[in-house]
Amino acid sequence: MQTPHITVTDLTMAYGDFVIQHGLNFTIDRGDVFIIMGGSGCGKSTLLKHLIGLQRPAKGDVFYNRRNFWQATAEERTKLMRRFGVLYQSGALFSSLTLAENIALPMGEFTDLSRSEIADIMSYKLALVGLAGFEDYYPAEISGGMQKRAGLARAMALDPEILFFDEPSAGLDPVSARLLDDLIIKLKETLGTTIVVVTHELASIFSIGTNSVFLDSETKTMLATGNPKKLLAESKDSKIIQFLTRGEGNVNNEA
């Protein structure tokens, strides 16, 4: 069997003494579109922070291809992190740099590509997200949806093996959200990128997700992991059914 790309074992997340989630165990395979879902305030974004190295787990481990992420030295961890791309909720573009400079920054820092090569790749990445011609704009001069797409272009700058998305469709109109979903699927298909998405948009969950974990804020642990469509069809847990049907599903009929 193929080694899972990301493995999480017995993860406990806490701020000081305040436990947010405990006992998280799941694996993400190469090429998965993995959804982290759950109600508001259940710790979805915190889980993402633990996966991308912004917050250290209180207990438990995160493995990338069997490499223990949090036990590694800071240097090794930085190397692992360089293979991630992260799209933050509001794009997190550097406001003092143009879009071109934003995207070129990681390439200039971490590759030995020539200036013209970087410029070509940068234009190509902007074109990929539908922003051809916007190289010389500052983030403040474009709309929120465009900022998000530019953030995606920056996340993809180094051809990452794993792309993390924090609420990619928040603040986007349905059509733009759909286009972003299509883009995510195309990236996965053409580049084989593993994709991890934090979201509670049902439409996205079902259209792109191939695997998922469901976090619950009351029991402070995960209730299920697996393909979201399968979860909807097979799960007996009323919370999951309610979440996946926007509270309209009747659990008794399923049983």
């Binding site: 190509y124 074109a127 990929l128 539908g130 922003l131 051809a132 011609g133 916007f134 190289e135 010389d136 704009y137 883009l183 195309k186 298909e189 053409t190 580049l191």
Partner: peptide, 22 residues
């Protein structure tokens, strides 16, 4: 290869509009 074709199509899906570029 199909992958490159897909990416190129994606990159050309939204052509640059005249006047956008500074």
């Amino acid at each position: 290869p199909e992958g490159i074709q897909g990416l190129l199509n994606l990159a050309r899906a939204v052509p640059e509009r005249a006047g956008d570029r500074r």
